[in-house]
């Protein structure tokens, strides 16, 4: 539980400026504008766009606020904040998960564009699950970026988890192949495969990723495999394209939103979760080994729009 407190401090700390900006501006809007009219909505739209939610999403969000306000039969602007919170929580709440882990070996394939924070995230997940009592192994399948293998090795040491690697320039699919064999023979519970950063519009690199995924499915047919996309919270609308393209090549089971300790709002996840129905699994809130936490829609929205008079 101690950890959780630390997490909230970090999340709130990081989001503080954001929160201040968003809620202050919304509060100011509400106090200066008591009625829910077009002018109010127009200003609300401006405020919300600063969170990196796409224009479309903001429009949909405002439509929904209008609808719910009508249902409530109110025209008072002070309901707006509560409604926004409600709607966002609805949208961000995970779609129900289908299956529990049946198989012994669980494999995570961690993908994303360059500089999103894949290697760091792999290290953090390894430490987290190791502490949860699992046998964890890392696979250094980013064989492209200079010193990526060394970087993962250091994370392996920190988390006290073995790292399977073949060095820079090796075939990433071969590294994954090796890692699966090693994981099977060493009775590993969780194998985490780090991959090279690739921009989603690079056809050849996406095909390479597809191949890695194929090798995983073939060589570890009885394992449960999850593909996780690492997204930088600082990213703008391109994150939506990233999610869509990666999802098309290697169907995504979840998203990890990194760098949420910064001042960015991470609002771009709203259209992703809402439209693509891919759940956010973890959020990264720092460079430390335990700066990774499970995503919770309610708390995420809390951090964005802290509860005001309504509940306090």
């Amino acid at each position: 539980m101690e950890k959780k407190n630390g997490f909230f401090n970090k999340l709130f700390g990081g989001l503080e400026k954001t929160r201040q900006q968003l809620t202050d501006r919304i509060s100011a809007l509400v106090s200066g504008h008591s009625e829910l009219d077009e002018e109010f909505y127009e200003e609300l739209e401006e405020i919300l766009i600063l969170s990196d939610m796409s224009f479309e999403t903001v429009e949909a969000l405002i439509e929904e606020v209008k609808k719910r306000a009508r249902k409530m039969g109110t025209k008072e602007s002070r309901v707006a904040e509560t409604l926004l919170r409600e709607i966002l929580i609805d949208w961000l709440t995970d779609p129900p998960k289908e299956s529990e882990l049946k198989s012994k070996l669980h494999i995570l394939l961690v993908v994303g564009v360059n500089g999103a924070g894949k290697t760091t995230t792999c290290g953090k997940i390894a430490a987290l699950e190791k502490n949860n009592g699992l046998q964890v192994m890392l696979a250094a399948a980013d064989t492209f970026r200079a010193a990526a293998v060394e970087q993962l090795m250091i994370w392996g040491e920190r988390a006290e988890v073995p790292v399977i690697s073949q060095g820079q320039g090796a075939d990433p699919a071969a590294v994954v192949f090796d890692a699966i064999q090693a994981a099977k023979s060493r009775d590993v519970d969780l194998l985490i495969c780090d991959t090279a950063g690739r921009l989603h519009n690079k056809k050849n690199l996406m095909l390479e990723l597809e191949k890695i995924h194929r090798v995983l499915k073939r060589e570890a047919a009885d394992a449960s495999i999850e593909v996780l996309l690492v997204l930088d919270a600082t990213t703008g609308q391109n994150a939506v394209h990233q999610a869509k393209t990666f999802h098309a090549i290697t169907p995504l089971d979840g998203i990890i939103l990194t760098k949420l300790d910064g001042s960015s709002k991470g609002g771009v996840i709203v259209p992703i979760v809402k439209d693509l129905q891919i759940p956010i699994q973890f959020i990264g809130v720092g460079e430390g080994i335990d700066d990774l936490q499970e995503f919770n829609a309610e708390k995420f929205v809390d951090a964005l729009f802290p509860q005001t008079v309504d509940k306090a």
Partner: peptide
Amino acid sequence: VDAMTGQEAVNV
């Protein structure tokens, strides 16, 4: 600066 940066680019 990453060309993919969103609204926060200004503050950064």
